[in-house]
Simulated assay, not measured.
Amino acid sequence: MDMLTDSLAGIGPFFTYLVIGLALIALFKVIYSALTPYDEWGLVKREQSQAAAIAIGGALVGFTLALAAAAANSVSLIDYALWAGVALVAQLLAFTMVRLVILPGLVEKIEQNNVAAAIVLAAINLCVGLLNAACMSY
Rank of each mutant, 00 (worst) to 15 (best):
V19F: 15
I20E: 03
A23W: 10
Q48L: 14
A9T: 11
I54A: 05
V86K: 08
A71F: 04
F15W: 14
S33N: 04
A59L: 05
I54W: 09
A53H: 08
W41P: 02
A71K: 13
V101T: 09
G42E: 03
D39V: 00
A23Q: 09
V44I: 15
A26I: 11
W83N: 14
A84N: 05
V86R: 08
E108K: 15
A69W: 09
T36F: 05
L92E: 02
V30T: 08
A59H: 06
G62L: 00
K109F: 07
L93G: 14
P37N: 01
E111A: 15
S7Y: 14
A9P: 06
L67N: 05
Q48K: 15
G21K: 07
A87N: 13
Q48D: 14
D79K: 02
G21A: 05
A55M: 07
G105H: 12
L24R: 06
Q91T: 05
V61T: 10
G58D: 01
G58S: 01
V98H: 00
G57L: 13
F14C: 04
L82H: 06
V75W: 06
L106N: 05
S7I: 09
L77V: 15
L43P: 00
Y17H: 08
I11Q: 09
L77C: 06
F14W: 11
I110W: 02
F14N: 08
V86A: 14
E108C: 03
I31Q: 02
A51T: 05
L18M: 10
S74V: 10
N114E: 15
